[in-house]
Write a protein that binds this DNA or RNA. Sequence first.
DNA 1: ATGAAAGCGCTAACAT
DNA 2: ATGTTAGCGCTTTCAT
Lengths: 326, 326
Amino acid sequence: MRPTIYDVAKEAGVSIATVSNVVNNNGRVGEKTRQKVLKTMKKLDYSPSVVASALTGKKTKTIGLLIPDISNPFFADIARSIEDRGNELGFSVIICSTDNLEEKEKKYLSVLIRKSVDGIILASGVRNLTLLEELIEKKIPVALIANDIPSIPLTTVTIDDFKGGYIATKHLLSLQHTNIAIIAEHAWSNIQRINGYQQALMEENIESREEYFIKTEATIESGTKAALQLLRLEEPPSAIFACNDLLAIGVIEAARELGLDVPNDVAVVGFDNTILSRLTVPKLTSISQPIQDMGKKVFDMLLDSELTNQKTLFMPELVIRDSSGK
Amino acid sequence: MRPTIYDVAKEAGVSIATVSNVVNNNGRVGEKTRQKVLKTMKKLDYSPSVVASALTGKKTKTIGLLIPDISNPFFADIARSIEDRGNELGFSVIICSTDNLEEKEKKYLSVLIRKSVDGIILASGVRNLTLLEELIEKKIPVALIANDIPSIPLTTVTIDDFKGGYIATKHLLSLQHTNIAIIAEHAWSNIQRINGYQQALMEENIESREEYFIKTEATIESGTKAALQLLRLEEPPSAIFACNDLLAIGVIEAARELGLDVPNDVAVVGFDNTILSRLTVPKLTSISQPIQDMGKKVFDMLLDSELTNQKTLFMPELVIRDSSGK
DNA sequence: ATGAAAGCGCTAACAT
DNA sequence: ATGTTAGCGCTTTCAT
């Protein structure tokens, strides 16, 4: 059996309160006693049980992270940034890949509650707002990253998605493109990106065309399918802004399928600047999010009740590679 | 406050023991009482505290997963497969990205112990074997996936890496290559792959040359660097077997840098068949591991003490794409 | 079939 | 400065 605080106390000839005090650096403990206890702890290889201490009202030092899919590189990056900050702070993170399925969200959430996590970070949308409201009602700290649900006041960390869409489109515009299509997924962030795209077009007095706008899922296949549809239009776009890298990769594949050259026949800009954008041929121009900073920030906001329901916005950056032209 | 078992008991007019019994489907509880309790639980939105039940000796229903880096797609896939199985079984998984740093391994391990996890799955090597031995001594279930430490009896799930190396090389051989180089990282699995490579060469009476063998880290950059070195040899290899996809991608980049055509000037075979292998140009021929099955299996073995220290071997498969020839 | 009560390992008053 | 003790929410004998 693992040694308990009693074992240490007995062996060191002190009370459990004293042991507890040295473990937690609490209160007044004589230096000699402290040393003795410390030594005994080491000798017995004692490590305090988080389970027991949590039962007395202390934190569990673990948080839950809901993401659509940990095997999606963008979300893996987010997970990593949050994990890193957690590790610095002595927190563990439980991953919950929901596949954007309401049922899984529900199940994961209830498990996290039963485990008394200290907070929950949502990197995925939430289909069932009632679930979210229940969390808030239960006073479980919640924070969102790369994601927002404007209908509820929530702690969030995002980039300025509007600006992201705007600079992506401006970039294409600066390359003399006027027929710019956009492929997006169904998410709040993407709506902002679309708005940014439209704003950029508007500033150049270019009308945004219905047929240049496709909404789909965030997968390579969907990107290919959407791009195929766009590129087979009577008047196909000369540039496509894909609202995430997976879609952009799909676009590049579609172009290859049609024997079209990227960027000369179609320019492509992605979003998120994942590792994938360095691997495509041609390399993908993309909008980057400062994920490390965002992960750190969201963790800190989650834990600091002063910051509840505040929104912090990071700035996206255009990373020019080869897919958008020379 | 969250309702406790006492609240339910009082509200339902029964004892906490009875509530406990209905929660756990234990013992003899009258059907009428059971219904009443169930209803009260729902009414109060009661969910049992895992923390409290864990303190009485029950499981925490959470395990730890040590991997080098969750943002590496291969490990993200492994994490996903384990998470999925955990979810089916009602387990949570805590991710621990160690970056292969002994210090981080140590820290994560001690945190997992303090949190009384029910088991630990290692997808990363372990630099400090003492740490591992301590886990075993503490009777914490440990299992390895895609990874082995032959010097200690351990529960493991791997593919037959020897065979993986063998079929990769055989494939290249069948394409008439005789100058086949290999790039590997420092890991037990890679040693096996190298052995398989050598066996295949031997069967064709080809001597394996010292200068065709490079050991390095598993990153794209290292792959590029290694490939550059190989391809600048007086007698450069006509084929390179990279022991993982990241290295293989590096090789492809090196070839491009040198203006060499893949597969005509250099054929390339990778390993792991990650999502990345579909994205390269040309698409990467790779050896696949049945990760979903392996994740499920390792979880089951971890929990089943009957299976302790057994080894299960899955079969690798050659996935032919474009990087190895036509 | 149901309840009373001890105990899991720890924290936090409250005593001394 | 150190010890005693009452919980925290649950499981589990042991009674009834």
